[in-house]
Nucleic acid binder design. Structure first.
Lengths: 112, 112
DNA sequence: AATATATACATAAGATTTTTATGTATGTAA
DNA sequence: TTACATACATAAAAATCTTATGTATATATT
């Protein structure tokens, strides 16, 4: 990531969402996909991404499958069953966060 | 703040927004106001709030006015001119963030 | 009278997440 | 042969937050 501080805390949600729609993806692919989908608005850094993937794997949310393409290493990640549940949770959390923030931003908060 | 990690990075935006609608507020009042507006969803902790207010003051975004009410100390904060500009920036960043995340969440991201 | 809760400030230690800086290695374009 | 893209990785530092603690006054409860 390298952006508005608001992106802090969103990385896991983004990864899981992408994996819920693409049944397997590798790290570099995720960075490129996010850059494309957000028109360059959001750039995930490797220093944030790889540790996050490792943690998700360690937590049993993702499983990995190492392959070699063009003599180059690739680690494909996919959601486990637990990962699918976790994705739903993270997405509903995001929805709730957005609603809460919209409420704060849109409301007149002046005292009566 | 509270539970969902998504709130990380949002505190400054929330403070500034509240102060843009209430011309002066003190710390404790901000915590109560946010709790009420979010129906308990978001609880700003003192350990996060006070350092944030101090930083905003040091940055010239807020100015402080110390008073005594019922023999108890109160530090009222209000936006400076710089703070008003900063508020507009933070709010448009939030709007942009929400749009970006909505795009990520709602779009089908599968490869063609 | 004593205790708990609310009001009101503050800071320090630790946890978590991210940026920035590096490092390795291969393939391709200039 | 130099630069850029692909593809992984980690470590130091920065940023932000939680948890814990501290001070002090006012009010409500037991």
């Amino acid at each position: 990531m390298s952006n508005s501080k608001l992106y802090k805390g969103s990385l896991i949600t983004i990864i899981l969402k992408l994996l819920s729609e693409n049944d397997k993806m590798y790290g570099y692919e995720i960075t490129q996909k996010v850059k494309a989908l957000t028109k360059g608005e959001l750039n995930i850094t490797e220093g944030a991404l790889y540790p996050a993937l490792h943690k998700l794997e360690a937590d049993g949310v993702l499983e990995v499958e190492v392959t070699k393409v063009d003599n180059r290493l690739r680690k494909y990640y996919k959601l486990t069953e637990k990962g699918t549940t976790e994705t739903a949770n993270k997405l509903s959390e995001l929805q709730k966060y957005i609603e809460t923030m919209q409420a704060l931003v849109n409301s007149k908060t002046r005292l009566a």
